[in-house]
Design a protein around this nucleic acid. Structure first.
Lengths: 339, 339
DNA sequence: GCTTGGCACTCCCGAGTTTCGAGTGCCAGT
DNA sequence: ACTGGCACTCGAAACTCGGGAGTGCCAAGC
């Protein structure tokens, strides 16, 4: 159905369209890429490709542009992820080295990713449930109000306010802090839930109301998926979408503010070897019909802590973008592993 | 020079232009607002206003639009801040009630402000130096690496990683934590610097290197202005700038990512009674020539903790926007005072 | 049978032209 | 000092129109 040359033609069309953002015709195609055939032949191939739904004409007597399916085929079969140049690699590592805490790592990563892909970058903070407890702190703010602070192995710090049922006995707090830490430190958050219950049981019934309040709140902190944090950067790159701002850019800006949507866009975290690419209507969000997402997981080799990626127009340079996303994910994984 | 009626005309021009975003002519002006005079008279007044630099014509034979100076006069002399409707007030308080921690308060505030002003909202986190120390935590992460966590009276949690000069003696850490807390708790960050020094002196010379490292880092955390955090929201409202996206919107998007610039835009924190309005070129940032900022402080009545505000096109509805910003600042101040 | 040159056809794009009307400035009259 | 009248300006929108890029199809050629 689609022989080798037709695929070459499709590849050439995608590359040309990505470079120029203009419909590409048979003549210009043979001129620019040296396919060894005549425009007429290319035209026949184009007709076939259009028949199959990989390319389309904006109007009669215009060149062709790739459809979402065309990009999909291009990404899956017709291109290879482009490795970064040594200079770029050096730039990445020098940019990331010297981050002082997790927030800083994430901020730098977003900035870096936006800069080298020239797209909008999205970085998800390491998922709580896959990290482990480093330390738990209980601080009295007012006699009836406590602040819980959870520090995880990934350096993430979570805080939460708890209203106490009664005025708080300071000695009890000290006691609780000690027991919580000895019971939970080092445990994965996912496993910590069960340990928490047993801690409750070691307290006298009189102290139970307070202890339960705290434990419950802690439990929420451990499990709440809604608390997923996300950083976004490089929104200024949206200017390069072309025109029809209202239809193309506005929905993206709106999506960028809805972290729930972003999480869906990024999708399941995969390991840094695997890149997820969602093209146009493949996205789980209406309004991003002209938008693609390139994402991958980061964290350890075997298991991803969280996801990062970029959002850009479907007519992006996939090989370079994918290379950049993968490279950044790897470097971030490395930085996190070191600390 | 400018009698009462000329000012009326200017007011009418601003209001009309803000509503329609189109140059306004003498005829339409008398039609829409009932000034008791003829178009010809208005034309004379317009000529005078143009002479004084308050309005301008995009081209001959077009209506007039206000200049930055025109808006300035409008804001200073010709308009009153518009109070919010009871329904809006209810919406604000119900939106802000139920925030679980400081982060949540700020996030909700940004969202709220963006929503009711339909502009881009900016909220600065409460300034560190004006709050006081609630608690200091020192956590060992690896034998050579410590995590400092500072909890302030405003509920803000700051973290910082410290590399220890030697492997850490756990007992020393406990000791240090105790002394730090008893010396600093309740002190304002601004004053804490001096207390920190005296704490150092209570330690044996052998322990000094580590103590100094920690104290130094803590000191930085207290004072660093660069660590000012800022939240931004409502970028999708930028779509309503009109066209010439490249010139108007791009610089704003870029500025929104540079928190240093945003801080300059917001300017000095004032108390919630005073609204700061910067119009067009008055902004300390080139590229925001078509942009205005409306900002005010929030915190206690007497002293502002930080600043919040909005960024939007110069042709915004100043009375409503100013009313909304002021109202939100007051409600946030109240929420923070309660907690 | 695939490829190719030729050819008629389509139709978008940009330049040039025209018209239209909102808006202006000025002046004379009240 | 205000107003009605009037000539003038000039951008926006509508329209026209040729050029050219691109297409599909067909018959000839390798």
């Amino acid at each position: 159905m689609l022989d080798e040359r037709k695929l070459d033609v499709l590849r050439a069309i995608v590359e040309d369209y990505v470079a120029t953002h203009e419909p590409v015709g048979s003549k210009t195609l043979v001129d620019r890429h040296n396919l060894g055939v005549s425009p007429a032949t290319v035209r026949n191939d184009m007709a076939a490709l259009e028949e199959e739904g990989y390319i389309t004409q904006p109007h009669t007597s215009a060149g062709r542009i790739p459809t979402d399916a065309g990009y999909r085929l291009f990404v899956d079969k017709l291109s290879t992820v482009k490795a970064l140049s040594p200079a770029e690699k050096r730039a990445i590592s020098s940019f990331l080295v010297g981050a002082v805490d997790l927030d800083d790592v994430v901020r730098r990563t977003v900035r870096l990713l936006a800069q080298i892909t020239r797209q909008v970058a999205i970085v998800q903070y390491p998922t709580l449930s896959r990290s482990s407890v480093r330390h738990i702190e209980v601080v009295t703010m007012t006699p009836r109000r406590l602040l819980l602070v959870l520090i995880t192995s990934t350096g993430r710090v979570e805080q939460r306010i708890v209203e106490a049922p009664d005025d708080v006995d300071e000695q009890l707090i000290v006691d609780l802090r000690t027991r919580l830490n000895s019971a939970l430190t080092g445990q994965r958050l996912a496993d910590a839930a069960t340990s928490l219950e047993s801690v409750t049981e070691t307290f006298a019934p009189a102290d139970r109301p307070l202890v339960t309040a705290i434990v419950t709140s802690l439990l929420e902190t451990f499990t709440v998926e809604g608390e997923q944090r996300i950083a976004v950067g490089g929104a200024a790159n949206l200017t390069r979408y072309g025109d029809d701002f209202e239809r193309n850019v506005k929905p993206v800006l709106e999506a960028l503010e809805e972290h729930v949507i972003l999480l869906k866009l990024l999708g399941e975290a995969t390991n840094p070897q695997t890149l997820t690419v969602r093209i146009g209507h493949e996205n789980p969000y209406e309004g991003l019909a002209t938008t693609s997402v390139v994402a991958t997981g980061y964290g350890s080799k075997s298991e991803a802590l969280a996801t990062l990626g970029i959002v850009g127009p479907t007519h992006m340079d996939y090989p370079s973008t994918m290379g950049a996303v993968r490279a950044v994910a790897r470097y971030v994984s490395q930085i996190l592993a070191d600390s």
